[in-house]
Simulated scan of single mutants.
Amino acid sequence: MNWYLTVLKKYAVFRGRARRREYWFFVLFNVLIAIALALVDTSMGTFDPETGTGLLGALYSLAVLIPTLAVAVRRLHDTDRSGWWLLLLLIPIVGVIVLLVFMALSGQHGANEYGGDPRQSDSADQAQAF
């Protein structure tokens, strides 16, 4: 849950880097919340099967649109790619597959043009906790 809240705290931060863990936990919690909201929308009668969305689900999707884009851009930065690679989503099927591969790749070790290695900063934070 901490990774989800971390992304929300960086609501519109498009610079820097995001670890795989940060990105994928955010995606996981988004999917779980979307399923829960779909169930609530269905029970309230606000779910439209033709569009596949309900009132609460649509409002939630709109609320997390910018954080979702921001964490995706930061994830691409971690793999030393520009955020403009997100435009691959405009290419049906192939674009989604390529982006899934990019998001699953390990980040670049050490600093790159987008910032320092987030794994090293996490290690420093854990060392300070002790």
Results as ranks from 00 to 15, higher is better:
Ile93Leu: 15
Gly110Thr: 10
Leu105Glu: 04
Thr79Val: 15
Gln120Ile: 11
Phe102Cys: 12
Ala72Val: 02
Trp84Ala: 08
Arg119Tyr: 11
Gly116Val: 12
Leu56Tyr: 07
Val27Arg: 09
Val40Phe: 09
Thr68Lys: 00
Leu28Val: 15
Met103Tyr: 14
Trp85Phe: 13
Pro67His: 05
Gln126Ser: 14
Thr79Gln: 09
Phe102Trp: 10
Thr53Lys: 11
Ala127Trp: 09
Ala129Gln: 14
Leu39His: 07
Ile66Tyr: 00
Val27Glu: 02
Gly107Glu: 00
Glu50Tyr: 13
Asp117Ile: 09
Lys9Tyr: 06
Ser106Gln: 15
Val64Lys: 00
Gly107Thr: 00
Ala129Leu: 14
Asp48Tyr: 02
His77Leu: 03
Leu99Gly: 09
Leu8Cys: 05
Leu5Cys: 03
Tyr4Arg: 01
Ala129Ser: 14
Ala72His: 08
Trp85Asp: 03
Ala72Tyr: 06
Ala129Cys: 10
Val98Gly: 05
His109Asp: 12
Thr42Asn: 10
Arg119His: 13
Val71Arg: 01
Gly52Ile: 03
Lys9Gln: 11
Thr51Val: 15
Ile66Met: 02
Asp117Asn: 13
Arg119Pro: 00
Val13Cys: 08
Tyr4Gln: 03
Asp78Gln: 05
Phe14Ser: 02
Thr6Gln: 11
Asp122Tyr: 09
Leu105Ala: 08
Asp122Thr: 10
Val71Met: 07
Leu90Ser: 09
Leu86Cys: 10
Gly115Asp: 02
Leu8Met: 12
Ala104Lys: 08
Ile97Gly: 12
Pro92Ser: 12
Trp3Ile: 04
Leu87Val: 13
Asp80Gly: 03
Ala36Met: 15
Ala58Asp: 08
His109Ser: 13
Asn112Ala: 05
Ala63Ser: 13
Arg19Phe: 01
Tyr23Met: 02
Leu55Gln: 15
Gly54Ala: 01
Lys9Arg: 14
Leu76Ser: 08
Tyr60Gly: 00
Arg81His: 12
Gly16Asn: 04
Met1Glu: 14
Pro118Cys: 04
Tyr114Gln: 05
Lys9Trp: 04
Phe26Met: 02
Arg19Gln: 08
Leu90Cys: 12
Thr6Leu: 09
